[in-house]
């Protein structure tokens, strides 16, 4: 197993992934990016509203994975939740889209060593987390206990539950490398 992410004495965060792992990470990030780009509807009728990030019609996503990325901000007040969505979702979506696009660009320029500044490490971390949220939603991972069951059902180690478990491990090593720097 690769060492994944470590912080160097100069404050850079270095990721060491073998080519197979790097390709896997890249393909998972690309899946998130395509999900976000697909829903990035720029058909807003009002250009001023678009400029300030307000969506005329920000609908509650039907896809549970998207709903997990853009959850309701009010639990028992649909109208307040919809208002919040109108004012925030477009900005939030651009932020998440730009973040995963940047993470992919970082991987594209990396060789066998992924060198990250603190800011780049934060982008990578956020994109990995969004990817895990989407994967978990697709896997129907509703509590901490059913991952083992899903892993047992997969005949080979290349299945989605195994990818999820691997990405969890990878994110853990990255968050630890970043937190090291803060302390």
């Amino acid at each position: 197993m690769a060492h994944a992410f470590n912080r160097t004495i100069t404050g850079k965060i270095i990721g060491r992934l073998d080519p197979v792992e790097q390709a896997l990470l890249r393909s998972l990030l690309i899946q998130l990016a395509s999900l976000l780009h697909k829903t990035d509807e720029s058909e807003n009728a009002d250009p001023i509203a678009q400029l300030v990030g307000i969506q005329e019609l920000a609908e509650r996503p039907e896809d549970p994975a998207l709903l997990r990325l853009f959850p309701d901000a009010y639990r028992d007040d649909e109208s307040a939740a919809n208002d919040f969505r109108r004012y925030t979702e477009s900005g939030l979506r651009s932020q998440k889209t730009n973040r995963v696009d940047s993470a992919i660009a970082i991987l594209d320029r990396a060789d066998n060593k992924i060198e990250l500044t603190y800011e780049e490490a934060q982008l990578m971390l956020g994109a990995m987390n969004d990817t895990r949220l989407v994967l978990a939603s697709r896997l129907g991972l509703t509590n901490e206990l059913n991952l083992d069951g899903l892993l047992a059902k997969e005949s080979e180690s290349g299945g989605p539950a195994h990818m999820y478990e691997w990405l969890t491990w990878l994110q853990e090593t990255l968050v630890r490398a970043i937190a090291d720097e803060k302390n």
Binding site: R68, L69, F70, P71, D72, A73, Y74, R75, A80, F84, T88, L92, Q95, K96, G126, N129, D130, L133
Partner: peptide, 9 residues
């Protein structure tokens, strides 16, 4: 939400 945490008001 931008960090991916599930938060409400």
């Amino acid at each position: 939400h931008s960090y991916g945490l599930w938060a409400t008001i």
